[in-house]
Computed example of a mutant assay.
Amino acid sequence: MSLDTTGSKSRLRLWLRLLKASKLIETELRERMRRELDTTLPRFDVMAALSRNPAGLKMSELSGVLKVSNGNVTGIVERLVEEGFVRRDAVKGDRRAFLARLTEEGRSEFERQASAHEGWIDGLLSDVEPERAERLAVLLAEVAAHLEEGKHHEN
């Protein structure tokens, strides 16, 4: 079993550094969300998904978009409904299903949160020059697309 040691070690190092950077950023975002916006990252993610889908999403679609179980989003959506940020609309032809969508108040609140989130990310990554950030974003998008297509292979 021959392994390209240089390539293998470089890719492993890349993965570990990506993971470390991601965890550090996520930890900081979670703290700032809680402290400055009185919300959580999962709530923000639900509102972001609904913002990108103004016609609404069924719970199963929302779970799929967020890559989490239905149970995980149900409680979050319920609380957002109680707070007036999300509404539930019936789905024609399916009495058990409903579409979750942002209310006007929800859109306004999400815009406020998204603006803060963008500013935090900009500050956390301010040492990365815009051109390098763009190049890295393109490379990571290529990696993600490659993995999603199932073209990755095992050695």
Rank of each mutant, 00 (worst) to 15 (best):
Ser69Val: 05
Arg101Asp: 07
Arg101Tyr: 03
Glu28Leu: 07
Glu149Trp: 01
Asp4Ile: 07
Leu57Gly: 01
Ser115Gln: 06
Leu29Ala: 03
Gln113Glu: 04
Val128Glu: 14
Leu18Tyr: 09
Arg135Ser: 07
Leu16Gln: 15
Ala55Trp: 06
Ser51Lys: 12
Val77Leu: 02
Arg13Asn: 15
Glu118Met: 13
Thr40Ser: 02
Glu134Ile: 04
Ala114Gly: 00
Leu3Ser: 08
Ala144Phe: 12
Arg135Glu: 14
Ala55Val: 04
Asp127Ala: 14
Val143Ile: 14
Asp45Lys: 13
Ala55Phe: 07
Gly150Arg: 04
Gly119Arg: 15
Lys151Phe: 09
Gly84Phe: 03
His153Asn: 05
Ala21Phe: 07
Leu136His: 08
Arg43Ser: 00
Arg32Ala: 13
Trp15Leu: 15
Thr39Asn: 08
Leu57Val: 01
Lys9Tyr: 11
Asp38His: 14
Glu111Gln: 14
Asp127Gly: 12
Glu142Arg: 07
Arg95Ser: 13
Met33Asn: 11
Leu29Cys: 06
Val65Asn: 02
Ala114Met: 08
Lys92Asn: 04
Ser126Asp: 06
Val86His: 00
Trp120Asp: 02
Ala97Thr: 10
Ser22Gln: 13
Leu12Lys: 14
Leu66Tyr: 02
Lys67Val: 06
Asp89Cys: 08
Lys58Val: 03
Gly75Tyr: 07
Leu37Ser: 13
Ala48Val: 03
Gly106Glu: 01
Leu80Asn: 01
Lys23Ser: 10
Glu149Leu: 11
Leu140Arg: 03
Arg107Pro: 05
Thr40Gly: 00
Ser69Ile: 05
Leu14Ser: 11
Thr5Lys: 15
Val73His: 00
His117Cys: 05
Ser60Phe: 09
Ala137Asn: 11
Ala137Glu: 09
Ser60Gly: 11
Leu24Gly: 08
Lys58Phe: 00
Glu142Trp: 08
Thr6His: 10
Glu129Ile: 04
Arg52Leu: 14
Ser10Asn: 11
Gly7Phe: 13
Glu82Leu: 04
Lys151Leu: 12
Leu102Asp: 09
Arg43Leu: 02
Ser8Phe: 15
Lys23Asn: 06
Ala133Pro: 01
Val143Met: 12
Asn53Gln: 06
Glu118Ala: 15
Leu124Cys: 12
Gly93Glu: 00
Leu124Phe: 15
Leu124Lys: 14
Leu102Asn: 05
Ala48Cys: 12
Glu109Gln: 04
Ala97Gln: 06
Leu66Lys: 02
Leu99Asn: 10
Val81Phe: 01
Ala55Gly: 10
Ala97Trp: 03
Glu134Met: 12
Glu61Tyr: 03
Glu82Phe: 04
Gly150Pro: 06
Thr40Asp: 03
Arg107Trp: 06
Leu62Thr: 02
Ser60His: 08
Thr74Gly: 07
Ala141Asn: 07
Gly84Ala: 03
Glu142Ser: 10
